[in-house]
């Protein structure tokens, strides 16, 4: 077990190193950082001096090592555009994104699993057919259209929910700002959370459904029925649990994409999160922000994958045995 975890940790480290390397290259490929920093009338001599002072003439490995060391300390440099430390900007924006992702993940998982169970168990019910047909909409419509539609209906026409922003936020200890403690914060998060969750929800729903259909045909479900077990125990205890491995895999990956792809939703709803920070950074070629964002998203992905791997062991005793043996 420990052996397995350390192996996975080493793999995760390698992934992070590669990502760090790529985001380090960003500095060199997206224009010359020095010419980005100085004015037009700076002499070549001054530029060279600056280059020397910033350590840009050092060998590649030394520079990369310095980048890594700084990144480990949470230091990603100064944003070109806002002239403030990147880690500060990200710390400000991260709570908004993580809250949005959290709410939509809960939304997607709860509705996805219950919808998948229903459509899997009651295949021919009219409501199952309705869910499946409408879930096609979730898969096929692009996020921004859904967002705009929701804004049109609920914000413009019905005027029930705000169309942009986070509502009132409360500062918590440690600099975390939350919108989940105020009514206006909850109102503001509903539309973007639904927009962001819709695709993941449909995906989870469809996977649970097809896995349920498969599991319900297996011998051990037949045998469980033949033993007269209650259908509640069969459906949730035996069938659902056996569908969990693929569901955990996909859900884990999807939570990662929720973080990565919240960019579009945040833009549509002007949500003050990391995604909109990143979009602005791209527009201004704000390389430090971009590279920090890249590293951070990769870190979340790696972390989630690690959690997913560990969850497999919780669910499936056969895997535990493989590792022991």
């Amino acid at each position: 077990m420990i052996n397995f975890i350390s192996k996975r940790l080493i793999q995760s480290l390698i992934v992070m190193l590669v990502v760090a390397l790529i985001s380090f290259f960003l500095f060199n490929f997206v224009g010359d950082p020095v010419s980005n920093m100085v004015g037009q009338e700076t002499t070549i001599k001054d530029m060279n001096a600056l280059r020397e002072r910033l350590g840009l003439n050092d060998p590649f490995l030394v520079q990369f090592g310095r980048f890594l060391g700084d990144a480990l300390h949470g230091d990603f440099g100064i944003s070109y555009r806002l002239q403030r430390p990147v880690e500060e900007l990200i710390a400000e924006r991260m709570p908004a994104t993580l809250e949005l992702v959290f709410v939509s993940a809960v939304f997607a998982v709860v509705l996805g699993i219950s919808g998948g169970l229903f459509t899997g168990l009651k295949r021919n019910h009219w409501f199952s057919k309705f869910i499946l047909t409408s879930s096609l909409v979730g898969v096929s419509l692009p996020t921004f259209i859904i967002g705009i539609l929701l804004i049109y209906i609920f914000a413009v026409k019905l005027n029930w929910l705000p169309s942009f922003g986070r509502g009132d936020v409360v500062k918590l200890a440690g600099g975390w700002s939350t919108g989940l403690l105020t009514l206006s914060g909850w109102k503001a998060i509903i539309l973007p959370a639904i927009t962001l969750a819709l695709y993941q929800m449909t995906l989870i729903l469809r996977i649970i459904r097809s896995e349920m259909l498969e599991v319900m045909r297996t011998d051990f479900i037949k045998f469980a029925r033949a033993r007269g077990l209650k259908s509640r125990d069969i459906n949730y205890g035996h069938a659902l649990k056996n569908t969990l491995i693929p569901v955990i895999t996909v859900t884990g990956l999807q939570v990662g994409s929720l973080i990565a792809f919240s960019i579009i939703t945040e833009t549509v709803f002007q949500w003050p999160g990391m995604g909109s920070l990143f979009i602005q950074a791209v527009q201004f070629a704000d390389v430090p922000v971009m590279s920090a964002y890249l590293v951070l998203v990769a870190f979340f992905f790696v972390l989630i994958n690690l959690i997913v791997d560990l969850l497999y062991f919780v669910v499936d005793p056969r895997l535990r045995a493989e590792i022991k043996g």
């Binding site: 051990f220 033993r227 007269g228 005793p317």
Partner: peptide
């Protein structure tokens, strides 16, 4: 029927390898 199955009638299926739920002891 559920109360008859398992209580008054026991059923044994062909393949013991797949008749048991792998996730429970």
């Amino acid at each position: 029927m559920r109360k008859v199955r398992g209580a008054q009638i026991g059923v044994i299926f062909q393949d013991p390898l797949t008749s048991l739920d792998p996730l429970y002891t």
